[in-house]
Design a protein around this nucleic acid. Structure first.
Length: 133
DNA sequence: GGGGTGACTTTAT
DNA sequence: CATAAAGCCACCC
């Protein structure tokens, strides 16, 4: 388990499968920090630029993290919202409008086993299950 | 140690 | 449905 907050964000984000998305809040929950959604966005914004490249095998698939309304919400100039949509479309995701998609259809729902392995506090597991149902 | 800064979220209007 | 406001907390001066 990584020690720093940022490293833990990258660790969770790497678990999101191709063609699936998670919200910033969902990543925060999986970290065991239910109210750290904003910092998740910041972590993805300020990671080493090489890690943001889709071709980088050891990189972080930042484009699979969107906001709780199912919309792309990056303000990054290097990695734009348009770029993010193209990356997701390349993974098979269809958009409902310019930057919105069907969260019901594309949300990453970790297996119960994966959730157990993370040893999260019961309150966090409760909130997670409610989010994913 | 204090204050500003967010790729956020929820709740209230 | 759209907007606003408040709460949020890791990080960097």
């Amino acid at each position: 388990m990584a020690s720093g907050f940022f490293d833990r964000v990258y660790w969770i984000t790497r678990m999101i499968p191709r063609g699936k998305v998670a919200s910033y809040g969902q990543v925060a929950l999986l970290l065991g920090l239910p109210r750290a959604a904003r910092q998740v966005g910041w972590a993805l914004h300020s990671m080493p630029s090489g890690w943001a490249e889709p071709k980088n095998k050891d990189g972080v698939p930042w484009w699979r993290v969107i906001n709780s309304r199912g919309e792309i919400s990056t303000t990054c100039i290097e990695h734009t919202n348009i770029m993010q949509r193209e990356l997701l479309e390349k993974e098979g995701i269809k958009f409902l409008d310019e930057f919105g998609l069907n969260f019901r259809k594309y949300r990453w729902v970790p297996s119960q086993k994966e959730i157990e392995r993370m040893k999260l506090p019961s309150e966090v597991v409760y909130r997670l299950n409610r989010l994913l149902e």
